[in-house]
Amino acid sequence: MTTLLDDLLNMEAEEIWKLNERPDADGLRAKEQIYYEDVNEGDELPKYIYKPTPTHLFRWSAAIENFHRIHYDLDFGLNHDRNPSILVHGSWKQSVAPQYLKDWTLPNGWPWKARFEHRAMLVPGDVLIMWGRVTSKYEKNQMGFIELEIGMKTQDGIESMPGTATVVLPLRNGPPIPYPFVPPAD
């Protein structure tokens, strides 16, 4: 049972960090399927907690070859772009979102689509909470579609990435989700 987002936001940053539910490799290997019938409107997904440091930001810049100095050059960020610090990449946040949906739908569901906006500037020292909440569900073509509200909040409750997502879960006695994924015709 995941800690509710509202409860997390009433905690100190260090308490939030202790409730991180990001799975390790073995957890992902052994992930048990969530079926459509298991999910109800209002359910919350596990919370992925991050504490980005300058090293994390530098590693992401290097991995995706993004050389924008606002992400690793503190002097440039403060004095040229007048930012509060070096900034967490929007590209990292938007890569966490599909990972989060993938993990939740493993092993046989499908993280079909997500849309989100980038709002707040995130900096090293922030504690970040990737969260999701079921807003509705419906069946179509013998697949279970789950509509989600998703986001990444700071420990202060500032929403940095408000968004929505649609994922597909198998029905308990239904056929496998097609792969490659074929969405139903409208």
Partner: peptide
């Protein structure tokens, strides 16, 4: 390897060949 480590996604589907063969993919 560099991308998934920077993303902090340790999913063995990205690197464990034997396990990956046992998945639906």
């Amino acid at each position: 390897r560099r991308f998934t480590q920077a993303l902090m996604d340790p999913d063995p589907r990205y690197w464990d060949d034997e396990f990956a063969k046992s998945t639906r993919y």
